[in-house]
Computed example of a mutant assay.
Amino acid sequence: MDSKNRTVYEGGQAEITEKRSRFIATVKPVKTEEEALEFIESLKKQYWDAAHNCFAYIIGNGSKMPLKRCSDDGEPQGTAGRPMLAVLEGESLSDVCVVVTRYFGGVLLGTGGLVRAYSEAVRAGLDASVMITRRRGVKLRIKVDYTGLGKIQYLLAKREIKTLESRYTEAVELTVLVPEKELAAAEQEITEATSAAAQLTEEATCVFALVDQEPVILGPA
C-alpha cells in the first residue's frame, strides 16, 4: 500500500450555496457496494423533498480495478455524478461514497455552473471529513537494557516510528509500529546501534494509518 491507497476515516458533511440553490455533500467510508447503496437510499429518504440526490462512489481497497459508480439523479447528463466522481479520483480515494443533495433555488445554473457546484460541494464535504493513507506495517517488539534505550529512542524518533506500548521491568520492552518497507533498515540500525544487544521480535503484520499523527490499527494485512 502506498500514497495512492487513501480513504475516508471519518465522514463529514458540508453545504455550499450557488445562486440560491443549496448543495449538501455527505461523505461516508464504505467497504462494499451494498453499504454504499444503503447509504444513498438513507439520504434519499432523509432528503425526500430535495430536487436531486446525486452520488458517486469508489470501492476497491486501493485495487487496480476499483468499482466506480455515479448518478446525475435527474440533472443534465454529465453535470453532477461524473464531476463528483472525478473529485474522488483526483484525491486518489477508494472505499468512499458521497451524496450531494440539491435544493433548487429557482435560478438555472447551466451546464458549467452545475459541474462547478457539484465539484465544489464534494470538495467541501471531503474537507469536513478525516482522510487517511492506509499503509502496511509490522509490530516489532524490542527488548533492551536501560543503557541501550537512549540509542533506540533516538533511532525511532529519527525514523518517526511510533511506539504502541512500553514496559519497564529489569529491561525495557517496546512494541513499535514499523512501516513494512522500512522494517529491514530499521532492524539493521537498531542492531548496529546496540551492538546486537537488543532482542527484536517481529509480531503481527497489519494495516494502519496515522490520524492526528497517532497510529490507528485498521486490521490485519
Rank of each mutant, 00 (worst) to 15 (best):
V8F: 07
I16R: 00
T17P: 02
T17Y: 10
K19I: 10
K19E: 13
F23G: 01
A25E: 02
A25R: 03
T26S: 15
K31Y: 05
T32H: 05
E35H: 08
E35W: 09
L37T: 05
I40F: 06
I40P: 07
L43H: 12
L43F: 11
K45T: 12
Q46N: 11
D49I: 02
A51D: 03
H52W: 08
N53C: 11
N53L: 07
N53K: 04
I58R: 13
I58F: 05
I59A: 14
I59L: 11
G62P: 01
M65R: 14
L67K: 10
R69F: 10
R69I: 07
P76I: 02
P76Q: 04
A80I: 00
G81S: 12
G81A: 11
R82Y: 12
M84K: 07
M84W: 06
M84D: 08
V87I: 13
E89P: 00
E89I: 02
E89S: 10
L93R: 05
L93S: 02
S94Y: 00
D95L: 11
C97V: 15
V98L: 13
V100D: 04
R102W: 02
R102L: 04
Y103S: 03
Y103N: 03
G106D: 05
V107F: 06
V107S: 08
L108Q: 10
G110H: 05
G110I: 04
T111G: 06
L114S: 00
V115F: 01
A117T: 02
A117W: 00
R123E: 01
A124T: 00
L126I: 04
D127V: 07
D127E: 15
A128L: 09
S129D: 11
I132Y: 02
I132N: 03
T133K: 02
R134C: 11
K139G: 05
K143T: 14
V144G: 03
D145V: 03
G148I: 01
L149G: 04
G150T: 12
K151H: 12
K151W: 03
K151L: 13
I152E: 04
I152P: 04
Y154P: 00
R159H: 14
I161A: 09
I161V: 15
L164I: 07
E165D: 15
R167S: 13
Y168E: 08
E170L: 13
A171P: 06
V178F: 06
L183A: 03
E189R: 12
E189T: 10
I190N: 08
I190A: 05
T191R: 15
E192G: 09
S195T: 06
S195V: 06
S195A: 13
A196Y: 09
A204Y: 04
T205R: 15
V207W: 05
F208G: 05
F208A: 06
F208Q: 04
E214Q: 15
E214H: 12
P215Q: 07
L218S: 06
L218K: 05
G219N: 10
A221T: 04
